[in-house]
């Protein structure tokens, strides 16, 4: 049994359990049914941050070891990170619309910095598409991954310090005011999503390795010089 199938199976069980718990819990006194979405929103956002931290770490790993596997892991991590960050943004906006009546709260540092992170890593994936040479691509994206991960906390702090002045955070659920059931559903989903992430990461990295090997096969045949065939001249023509 491959590890990735075990991880994905485990994640599925966890998610079924966690999500049904979120669906079955009584609706929140203040927020109504919209509170259930927290069960997805928080784990997705957490995975976004985890993914981009890992992208930077694998990038460092590539720069140190130059092993292609590190690059595949960094790329997979960023791809999955973009997916979950997107999910976190969308669920956050749905929740915000239902709770506050506005989809995008400009006073929320977390929302703004998550959006910026989303764009940084869209740029990361665009860079990977633009660079064709695998070593050049690995090198440049590793550097971007590191610089991006350094900047994200600064983005968060800058938005948090100066943009949250008019914030009405009282109705925001935090650990203390959250009902135990909601908290439990969230924690189960957090664990399940993390396992899902690990399974997807291994799977996708392996896929990238196979893709790269396939591409290598197609061009491996001749050495560079043999592509140029000297023209044959007809005598007497």
């Amino acid at each position: 049994m491959k590890l990735r199938y075990a991880l994905l199976g485990l994640a599925t069980i966890g998610m079924v359990f966690g999500l049904s718990l979120a669906a079955r819990m009584p609706s929140d006194a203040v927020q109504g049914n919209s509170a259930r979405i927290i069960g997805i929103h928080v784990p997705a956002a957490w995975l976004g941050f985890l993914a981009f931290g890992l992208t930077a770490l694998f990038g460092i790993g590539w720069l140190v070891t130059k092993r292609p596997k590190m690059d595949y892991l960094a790329a997979s991590s960023a791809e999955i990170g973009v997916l979950f960050t997107g999910l976190a943004l969308v669920t956050g906006m749905i929740w915000g619309k239902a709770t506050w009546g506005i989809a995008w709260d400009w006073g929320d540092a977390r929302l703004a910095s998550t959006a910026m992170m989303f764009f940084v890593y869209l740029g990361y994936l665009a860079l990977r598409r633009a660079a064709t040479d695998p070593v050049q691509r690995a090198r440049r994206s590793a550097v971007l991954g590191i610089v991006g991960a350094l900047q994200i906390p600064l983005v968060y702090f800058s938005v948090n310090i100066w943009r949250t002045l008019h914030q009405t955070q009282s109705i925001r659920p935090d650990g203390a005011s959250m009902p135990t059931e909601t908290l439990l559903a969230m924690l189960i989903n957090l664990a399940a999503f993390t396992i899902l992430f690990a399974g997807l990461l291994i799977w996708r990295a392996d896929q990238l390795r196979i893709e790269e090997a396939r591409l290598a096969e197609t061009v491996l045949a001749p050495n560079a010089g043999s592509a140029v065939i000297p023209p044959k001249l007809q005598p007497g023509s």
Binding site: A112, S113, F119, V120, G123, V147, G148, Q151, V155, F157
Partner: peptide
């Protein structure tokens, strides 16, 4: 695209 989101910590303060 790379510069714009990374420049937020300069823009905001």
């Amino acid at each position: 695209l790379l510069v714009a989101p990374l420049s937020v910590p300069l823009l905001v303060p």
